[in-house]
């Protein structure tokens, strides 16, 4: 009887001990934020961040913007899943992806704010095109030339990319645009002026076009 009781007491002691050990040293959220920030700052300074990203509030909703050392590589619209975007960046570029400021991101965020306020008509930022290749890249480069407030048709963009009959393929290229808004795929419409699809939803497309005054 006594043995059993002693054993129970000992187990109780052990439980208390391990509970105390476990409860010992979790950082407070503010402290953790500071420590995390210090980590990403050092990682950036040591050149260990291959893809830096930040979240940015916009009238469309929260955007995600990511940059390599070459320039902006991805802009995620509110309709997109952040985890999927980050997984894709890790898979296709490098797993050294961190949430951290970078000069190119700061610059892009400021310009996005100006754009949404109606004060900016062109983006002056370096783009890294590595997430798109071949004909798709050509289509996006052609799309990048469409001026603010103007629109083009899928067929026109296909022609400018060198394949006049590939309007459908041009549509696919635009649907997978890794840099929406910055590469203005929202300015490409169906022949006859119907809105057509948009990665961020047709509502977002209409909103961007009306911001630019392109739909009258």
């Amino acid at each position: 009887m006594t043995d059993k009781r002693e054993e129970r007491d000992r187990e109780h002691d052990l439980e208390q001990l391990t509970a105390s050990l476990r409860g010992a040293a979790d950082p407070a959220p503010a402290e953790w934020e500071r420590i995390r920030h210090e980590l990403t700052t050092r990682a950036t300074a040591q050149g260990l961040v291959d893809v830096a990203f930040e979240r940015h509030d916009s009238p469309l909703g929260p955007l995600l913007i990511a940059a390599t050392t070459d320039g902006l590589v991805r802009l995620g619209l509110p309709s997109e899943d952040e985890d999927e975007i980050l997984d894709e960046l890790a898979r296709r570029i490098s797993a050294r992806v961190l949430l951290t400021p970078r000069e190119s991101l700061t610059r892009a965020r400021r310009q996005l704010d100006e754009y949404f306020d109606g004060g900016r008509r062109e983006f002056d930022v370096a783009l890294d095109w590595r997430l798109t290749t071949g004909f798709r890249r050509e289509v996006l480069r052609a799309t990048a030339q469409i001026p603010y407030g103007r629109t083009a048709s899928y067929a026109q963009v296909a022609t400018r990319a060198g394949r006049p009959k590939a309007a459908r393929a041009a549509g696919t290229a635009l649907a997978t645009n890794p840099l929406p808004i910055l590469v203005p795929c929202h300015r490409v419409l169906r022949t006859g002026g119907a809105l057509g699809d948009y990665r961020g939803g047709t509502q977002a497309k209409a909103r961007l076009l009306s911001l630019e005054g392109g739909t009258g």
């Binding site: 995390r36 893809v51 990203f53 980050l86 797993a95 050294r96 961190l98």
Partner: peptide
């Protein structure tokens, strides 16, 4: 190619 973004590790 199978590694998750380091951000998630942090």
């Amino acid at each position: 190619t199978r590694l998750p973004p380091f951000e998630r590790v942090v």
